[in-house]
Amino acid sequence: MLRRQVIARARAACRAPAAARSFSDKPLDVPPPVSDAFKDKFKQVAPNLQFPKFPSQFMKPRPAVPGTLPTKLTVNFVLPYKTELDAKEVDMIIVPATTGQMGILPGHVPTIAELKPGIMSVHEGSEVTQYFVSGGFAFVHPNSVADVTVVDAYPLDVFDPEEVRKGLAEFNAKSSTASTDAEKAEAQIGIQVHSALLSSLGLS
């Protein structure tokens, strides 16, 4: 009897860290973002089904719009395979919008900006972190939260200038031999990214 209790306790102890480790973000108690009519109709057409959840119910809650101008900008910098900055408070970011480099400070007017390949820098006091991003979108919300979603990004110091030059030459060659529209577009994108990268590295 005692032995069984000891085993049970040991098992519980083993299980506890596993449960804590579980990363699953349990749906918070957010009501579904639908009207009652929608719910009723769902019940009518599918009486035996559990009502589904919606992405907004899994989302991290966002801060409300503050009354006064905040001193810091909250940045979410996300990639498909990684969250680089998660609600980090910084002084300023500069993003490579298609219309030119765009600085974002706290209290920036709400904006949707398309990004081109280029340098994104994050300013935090006197510290500046630079990333090369491959294009995507940046949203600035009224609550001084900036979301930067890009397909890929790396810190600037991991690039090898030789490889970049080689890549640019390759895509230039491809561009001249491309026959279909898709191939041409692909080569064009390659040239764009590589030449932006070269100029970011200060080499062109």
Binding site: P33, F38, K60, R62, N76, T83, F137, F139, D147, T149
Partner: peptide, 15 residues
Amino acid sequence: GFWQPFVALMGDHPD
């Protein structure tokens, strides 16, 4: 993290 900015921007309107 990747899809959340879009939902934050445009909301979620299944209905």
